[in-house]
Structure formats: structure tokens, C-alpha cells
Nucleic acid binder design. Structure first.
Lengths: 335, 335
DNA sequence: CTGAAAGCGCTTACAG
DNA sequence: CTGAAAGCGCTTACAG
């Protein structure tokens, strides 16, 4: 078999022009059905592979989208984003797009270095997956390809981002605890840490407000310092009956800590998480938590970026996707 | 700023030809240093971005490599391969290559469907990351781009693969246990499961042979059935003083099981793992284990695939990369 | 329904 | 040291 088969080769074999072959293979108007069928058949027989680069050059589009994940989210505990990539990839495929995954090193982030896939025109747009510095956000907004931010947002203007509804998820979760008779409910997380931890806290707070439960400052329990390093939990004198943790990993840590201190989960106190990641089922008992709806978030993100590639003026703003409650064994009904 | 700046635009601005611009930007012979400098400067000022597609078409190369990960390895417990991707990516960057990550769905694997990145000539070669069916291996070997298998191998011929040295890693680990006075050493893993679990077992066995310790069939403890589902451990009557687990996750499970049954690790028995993944530090005590040398494996893999792209005839065979012993707290010296 | 011509943005081989 | 010409493999706009 010849190494490199082009439309012209197919055309010559059939005694037609390469224009006709192009039309046939792209299912365009202007070729008789019979000829089209033959062309496709011969293309198959000859092992023809379409050359995207020729099309790219003509159209000025690469049919690739750059997915940028900051290095710190590609660590050993973060299978999460690989799954996200998978969903993004599946959705892009429908639009004949491929994903070029780029892990942004801390150094490049600091130096505001744009990835080569951009400077060499290998991509038509960016999906930024995971929080990056405001400076980097600003720079990437000023490139001449469209950008969508996935799973985080900043307060900068003109930003299109797709997020899990942190606020609503924890609001719903806290309501669930209250329906199960809990009134002494603590929130575990540093509320000055990231915006998503903050939003989750606010969801918890709203739920308390609605049920006329006073917010007890002792019931806001720090899990990490401002730099993100975990610190030992300081449990309040008056023990809560339930803990709303800002993520599953913290719930995992808390449960281990509670056990060491002689408490039984969920009989002495209930614990809930957020994310439904690997930690949710590593705990004993398994965690009741909120699952991020990656599938829907990915679908929406890809739809947006493709629209933006076609029409630069489209904007979407901050789009929230609701998560799903996952009921397991870490909550006790105390009514 | 004009949307699309080409070498011709730079050339016109400077009153030279686009050939000269091409030479200058590519640091080729035949342009005076002074002119080269000016050209680069103007390119910068104009915000020029190189168009890879034009080069691709000329050369018939895309400067992309497809990294294929089978779906089952992209699950929530598998951050491992994302880290691998990161290292691969860094190494490819040096060669001006980008990675297109494709998660191969179970369905496409079964139907022997080639990814679009291949059929549309978006890639110059494949790196297969994670075990796939022999049929798929065979098919991908017959495409007209080179392939390297990373982190697994099959007995099919003409296969270039890069592997962690499972055999040697466990051999070294078992030697270490023996040096610490252990004689009653069990292996935990289904030796009919995957080739790497088998190879690890053989490393264990070699170590026993060398020390003239008889292989006790009761000391081969199954961790999963033939389908890969974990099953309860059946501990032997005569308890071993050490357990060599085929991976960290199994060591994690075993330690939890031992604790439930009233054993203390490492005082009653030592436990070691393999992989140094997330499970290695989730256990209490933390695991002594073997770390896969991802960095070196990635470097070698990329070097090989690039060489193979340049010269199709190159072959490398099965290349083993030694892992690194990580000493933590799960082994007791009983001498 | 079919095709000749031009062009996308580079690079290579050759001539000066 | 510099550049005119040709070509990579498609697609678009137009003519028949």
C-alpha cells in the first residue's frame, strides 16, 4: 500500500477530479449518489486518511482545543481532572475536535508563558481546568482564541465559566441534615481559602438561616491554613451532631480524627462531604456527599467553546451546574 | 492588531522575502545576524504566531503524538496515568511535539475502532498507556505510524515497550525483608491475573530461591478473582511475619484487614507494597514500597517514539526501567 | 452534476 | 547572503 494517499490519487483511479472527491467525502452537494458511493468505497480500499492540516490551512482552524490543567491539580490525588478530560474529549469528538492536554507548570504559570500549542497555532480555543493566578487568567483572556474556565471562576470581567453549584449543593446537603433532626451542625473548612470553599460555606449558612438556626462561630472549624496545608482539627466544647465538610478528603481526615478521639460515626455524629471522589468510599462508614456533575459540565463547556470559536462575540457568563446528592452511610436520622 | 500575521507580512514590512523570514525564524543558515535579529524583533512586535499546519503539510508530519489510555485506567482511582501524561508531555515539548490524549472507550476497544486523531492524520505516532486487548494491539501495530507500549507488554512480536522492572523491584524488596530477619514471607496477589502481577511474584520467588527459603503454597494469598474483583483475604494458619503485596492498594486493604483481626503492623507483621501511589500514605503505618520511575520511563518512551518517527526501522524491544525503593514505616527489623 | 483555477502559509532546492 | 518558483493536500468560488 502506498504510504500517502491523497484525494488526487482517488480521483485519478476513478477518472474524476479531486474536487469531486472532496465533495463526495464531505457529503456535499454536487455529486451523484452513485459516484459518491464509489468514491467512498475506493477511498476505503486504498486506505485513504484525510489530511486535517490541509483543511486547517485553508480555514485557519486546527480542530483542536487546548485543555490546560495547572500542575498542582495533576498530582497523585487528583484523578478527578483526568475524568473531566475524558468527558470533554467525548464531547469534542462529536464536533470533530480533539483535545490537546497541557499541564501548566508552576514555572510557566509564574512567568506567564503561553503554551506552545498556542504560539504554534495548534489550537482554536482554550479550556482552563482548575484555578490559576489572576495574572495568567488576564493574559489568556487577551490571546486571540476564545477561553472557557471550567470548575473555577474569578471576579475578572468578561469571563465565561462553567462551575459546579457549590452554594446550592451544600445548601441542599445541610437541609437534608436538618430534615434528619440535626440542629448542631458545624462547617469544616477555612472560609478564607478558595472561592468554592467560601461558596459552600454560604450554602450551609443559608440553610441555617432558613431554619432559623443561629450560626455558632465555634462551629466553623478550620481544616487548613491560608497556604492550603492541613492543620489539626479543633473540635468545639459543645460537640455538634453533624459536620458539613468542604470536601471528601477533609471528611476522610475528620472521620479518622473523630474515631481516634473515641467518637462513633454516624452514631455519635454525622459527617458529610463534597465531590464524591476517591475519599468518599475510603471512609468507614462511606460518605454521604455531593457528586459533581462532570458529564453535564463537560457537555456545556464544549458546546460553549465551539460556539465561541464560530462566533467570537458569544458570551455566557458564569454558568452553574447542579450536583447530585449521593446518599451513603455517614448520616444518622436523630429524630 | 491584524488577526492573522504571516511570514509574508513580516517580509513586506522589512522589504525582504518570506524565504528570508523563514530562515531567520528557524535559525537556519543564510541570513546575516543583523537581519535575523531584526526579523525576530519585528515578528515579536507584530504578534506573529507560527502556523504549524503549513509546515505539517509540507513535511507530512503533525508534530503531535497520540497518547492512548484505555477507559478503565482513567477511573477515579487512577491519577497515576495523568502524572505519566505530564512527564510525557514535558519530554515531548523538548522535541517540539504536543500530546493528544485520547481515552479509548471500552466500546471502541471492542470494535477495534481507531481514534479519529489517526484517521485524520493529526498524529505521527502512538504511545499506548495501559494494557489493551491483544486484538487492539495487533491492529494498532498495523497502522502506518509507529507505536510504543508504555507500562505493559504482550507476547506479540515486534513490540517496543517501556516497562517498570516489576521483577527486579519485588526481588529487591523481598531481599530487603530477608535482610531484616524475615523468613516467613507471603506474597499477596492472584498470580494468574496480569503479567505484571505475575512478574512481581517471580521476583519474590527468585529472592526466596537465592536465600534457600522454600516456597510455601499457603503463602500465596489471593487478593482478587480472575475478573479482577477483590475477594476477602484468607490468611494462613501459620502466620507469616511479612507480606509482599502486589500493589499499594492491596497493601492498604490487607493492613485494614489485619488490624480488624487484631494484628499490629509492623509489630506483628510487616507489609510492603508496590507503586508508591496514593494508597501508600493512606495506610497507618505508611508503606514501604517501590516507586515506579515515571520520569525516566517517560523520557525513554518519548525518545523512542521520536526516533521511530524519524526512522521507521528502529526497534527497541522490551525496555525495563528500574523502580526506586521507598522506605517508610511498615517493615520491622526482627533480627 | 462535474472540474479548472486559485489560494491557505510555509519550506526546499536551486539560482544568483 | 538573498530570493523566485514550486509544491504540500485540501476547499472555495466560479464556470460550464
Amino acid at each position: 500500500m502506498k504510504g500517502n494517499i491523497t484525494m488526487r490519487d482517488i480521483a485519478e483511479k476513478l477518472g474524476v477530479s479531486s474536487v469531486t472527491v472532496s465533495k463526495a467525502l464531505n457529503d456535499k452537494e454536487g455529486v451523484s449518489d452513485e459516484l459518491k458511493k464509489r468514491i467512498k468505497q475506493v477511498a476505503d480500499e486504498m486506505g485513504y486518511r484525510f489530511n486535517t492540516h490541509a483543511k486547517s490551512m485553508k480555514e485557519g482552524l486546527s480542530y483542536n482545543i487546548g485543555i490546560i490543567i495547572p500542575e498542582q491539580f495533576a498530582g497523585s490525588t487528583q484523578a478527578f481532572y483526568l475524568q473531566f478530560y475524558q468527558h470533554l474529549s467525548q464531547n469534542m469528538d462529536v464536533h470533530h475536535y480533539s483535545g490537546i492536554l497541557h499541564i501548566l507548570s508552576r514555572e510557566d504559570e509564574r512567568n506567564l508563558a503561553l503554551p506552545r500549542i498556542y504560539t504554534e497555532k495548534k489550537i482554536d480555543g482554550f479550556i482552563m481546568l482548575g484555578q490559576i493566578s489572576p495574572e495568567y487568567v488576564k493574559m489568556i483572556q487577551n490571546t486571540d482564541v476564545p477561553v472557557i474556565f471550567l470548575d473555577f471562576y474569578t471576579d475578572q470581567t468578561n469571563i465565561d465559566s462553567v462551575l459546579t453549584d457549590n452554594f446550592f449543593g451544600v445548601y441542599e446537603m445541610t437541609n437534608y441534615l436538618i430534615r434528619n433532626g440535626h440542629k448542631k451542625i458545624a462547617y469544616v473548612g477555612n472560609i478564607h481559602s478558595t472561592s468554592s470553599i467560601q461558596d459552600r460555606f454560604l450554602g450551609y449558612y443559608k440553610s441555617l438561616l432558613e431554619s432559623r438556626i443561629e450560626l455558632n462561630p465555634d462551629y466553623i472549624i478550620k481544616d487548613r491554613d491560608e497556604l492550603g496545608n492541613y492543620i489539626p482539627f479543633e473540635l468545639p466544647e459543645d460537640m455538634p451532631t453533624a459536620f458539613v465538610c468542604n470536601c471528601d478528603q477533609v471528611a476522610f481526615n475528620l472521620i479518622n480524627d473523630l474515631k481516634k478521639k473515641g467518637y462513633d460515626v454516624p452514631n455519635d455524629c454525622s459527617v458529610v462531604g463534597f465531590d464524591n471522589d476517591i475519599y468518599a468510599t475510603l471512609t468507614e462508614p462511606k460518605l454521604t456527599t455531593v457528586e459533581v456533575n462532570m458529564k453535564e459540565m463537560s457537555k456545556v463547556t464544549v458546546k460553549f467553546i465551539i460556539e465561541k470559536i464560530k462566533n467570537r462575540k458569544k458570551t455566557y457568563g458564569r454558568v452553574m451546574i447542579k450536583g447530585t446528592m449521593i446518599y451513603r452511610d455517614s448520616v444518622k436520622n436523630i429524630l
